[in-house]
């Protein structure tokens, strides 16, 4: 690992100043589980590493009338064990539990997973179906961006110079709902998704998101439309939605799987995610 300057500011303003001063030469250190691996392999060589874990407001997880705010430095295990998440946004806890290993989840964060913007990031697809917003700080104020607009491509996010993510905002959910994340991977722990599907139903309206089948997480409007039109969703009636899933993704072949296999598995994953979401629908 090439040497760098390490700083640990205690205010957001100080972080913004450093980011503005160094531009691409500055990298945010949060849980470090993606950053340090990339630095170790010399894929990135920052001049300055900005540790944000000293900023107390980033450690907050709180529910208000705006919804649930999860601060940038809240770890995966903190989210998994959060009563409010388990009660109201269970699908997020479920997907966080799919990330890496227990000890990795003691460091890794949801916001880190989002900002890394990997096509297979486990917590991102659930955030799409929960209509999450990314809360961004800059010295002129705060802006809220829907997650679908925040993630632009592989490792590309909508952050301008001097901006930093404060956290994720999950809007309140009213009425009957249930959601589930199905990850298809080669092994249970420490693996990336070959494909994955997040399915969420609120008052009969479905939201579907696919992972690891395009440069970003994708919503599934065709599958959603079919599911919404069904008077009863079961393993027979949802077959057209499975076919729709295949038609609205664009997977590639890589070390984890071939394109054809991914297309087959996205069908099955959609079915399993939807049926599991129905089991939890209440």
């Amino acid at each position: 690992m090439k040497n760098f300057e390490y700083v640990k500011p205690s205010t957001m303003e100080a972080v913004a100043d450093i980011l503005q001063q160094y531009g691409d030469g500055a990298k945010i250190l949060n849980g470090g589980t993606d950053l340090l691996v990339r630095m170790r392999d010399n894929l990135i060589k920052p001049q300055v590493v900005v540790d944000i874990k000293g900023i107390s407001e980033l450690r907050k997880i709180e529910y208000t009338e705006e919804g649930l705010f999860i601060g940038a430095a809240v770890t995966m295990n903190e989210v998994i064990c959060s009563k409010i998440v388990l009660e109201k946004y269970r699908i997020l806890a479920q997907s966080a539990h799919e990330v890496g290993s227990y000890q990795l989840r003691n460091r890794a964060t949801i916001v880190g997973n989002v900002c890394n913007a990997s096509p297979s990031g486990d917590t991102i697809a659930p955030l799409y179906v929960l209509s999450a917003k990314v809360k961004i700080f800059n010295k002129d104020g705060i802006r809220l961006v829907p997650i679908e607009n925040f993630i632009l491509g592989v490792r590309k996010i909508d952050l301008k110079s001097g901006e930093i993510v404060l956290g994720i905002l999950l809007p309140p959910i009213k009425g009957q709902n249930g959601g589930s994340y199905y990850k298809h991977a080669r092994r249970k722990d420490v693996d990336l998704a070959t494909v994955a599907v997040a399915a969420f139903c609120n008052e009969g309206q479905w939201k579907i998101a696919y992972a690891a089948v395009a440069p970003t997480i994708l919503r599934g409007p065709k599958a959603e439309e079919i599911l919404n039109s069904l008077s009863e969703v079961d393993e027979n009636t949802l077959i057209p939605a499975m076919d729709a899933a295949t038609s609205e993704v664009t997977p590639i072949s890589d070390v984890r799987a071939g394109k054809e296999y991914r297309l087959d598995m996205i069908r099955i994953s959609l079915k399993r995610a939807v049926l599991a979401a129905l089991e939890l629908y209440k």
Binding site: L36, L104, N106
Partner: peptide
């Protein structure tokens, strides 16, 4: 009190 991977943490942390 928490298990962590020490290879993915900086000494300064």
């Amino acid at each position: 009190g928490k298990a962590v991977n020490s290879c993915m943490m900086l000494a300064v942390e």
